[in-house]
């Protein structure tokens, strides 16, 4: 029984989307979530890691940087499979795409000269430096926090994700993976590649300058117009046709009602399009 780190958004008994802040608190009410970690493994290679992850009798969790798991976001009693000994931490430019190993730390992504400006900007917004120095590209993709601007930026940069499974490897678009994460139940992200080039722009709204955005819009000029990404309007960051923003039904939390998030999505989308010259 295997599990990759769970998506940080859930549905409650009423079927409403529950943001991770609530989940985090529930994990900590009267108990110490770290106790859910019952074992630690540091396999030396991918095959060993996959074998550990796919044991029938043990629930296992892959750990990259550990900023979420270490913080207690552990779904249940689980053993840790730490992939640091073998996981790829390199960044390389290959056929006009930039490839990030799953173990690349967010700060290394920011600091690398090949990284597109949009990825660097949004990676910086994932958290303060203490967490950016530990958090990894693979872990961020796997968690796919619904307010993650970096995940939205990966979407906008046309990311594809390579996942190793026990018997084969697959490469899927990030968009596809976010729509169906069952691949991650048995597999491990090994790398992410993105397209370079294309003018980009962002617009966002938060309580303070470094606050996690309530809604953010990210755009990149592509051959047939603007590839638009949004955060805070669905269970995970999405790519959306700008003309379809009006049809969104965002989840809500204390920072923004569904209606407000929808208004933000429309306003911020318009700004991004304007910044990119209006070529939607």
């Amino acid at each position: 029984m295997a599990a990759i780190i769970c998506r940080q958004i859930r549905k409650n008994r009423k079927g409403e989307l529950v943001p991770p802040t609530i989940l985090g608190f529930q994990l900590r009410t009267g108990e110490f979530a770290m106790q859910a970690i019952t074992g630690y493994h540091r396999p030396s290679g991918l095959d060993e890691a996959l074998a550990l992850l796919n044991r029938d009798d043990v629930q296992s969790v892959v750990i990259g940087g550990g900023t979420l798991i270490g913080a207690g976001f552990v779904p249940a009693s689980a053993e840790i499979v730490d992939i640091q000994a073998f996981a790829d931490a390199t960044i390389e430019l290959r056929h006009e795409r930039i490839r990030y190993g799953a173990m690349v730390r967010l700060q290394d992504l920011i600091d690398h000269s090949a990284t597109p400006p949009l990825l660097a900007e949004t990676a910086r917004r994932e958290g303060p430096n203490t967490l950016r120095n530990a958090a990894t590209v693979g872990g961020t993709i796997a968690a796919a926090h619904f307010e993650s601007e970096l995940v939205a930026a990966f979407l906008v940069q046309d990311a594809s994700v390579k996942i190793s499974l026990p018997d084969h490897a697959v490469e899927v678009s990030l968009e596809e993976l976010l729509g169906d994460s069952t691949l991650l139940e048995r597999g491990i992200i090994t790398s992410v590649s993105v397209a370079g080039g294309g003018e980009t722009a962002t617009a966002r709204t938060g309580r303070t300058p470094a606050d996690t955005s309530i809604v953010a819009a990210l755009g990149r000029v592509v051959a047939d117009g603007i590839r638009l990404g949004l955060t805070g309007v669905a269970a995970h960051p999405i790519v959306i046709d700008p003309a379809a923003v009006d049809s969104l039904e965002p989840p809500e939390d204390f920072r923004g009602s569904s209606a407000y998030r929808k208004e933000l999505a429309k306003t911020l989308t318009a700004r991004v399009i304007d910044l990119l010259g209006g070529a939607a």
Partner: peptide, 28 residues
Amino acid sequence: ETGEAGSAAVLCDGRLISAEVMLAAQAG
């Protein structure tokens, strides 16, 4: 516990990280 306070920050290979969210085992 979430590492958001920073009072438990230490250097790991010269980088500032939160010792709150880093498992001791990871430091090996």
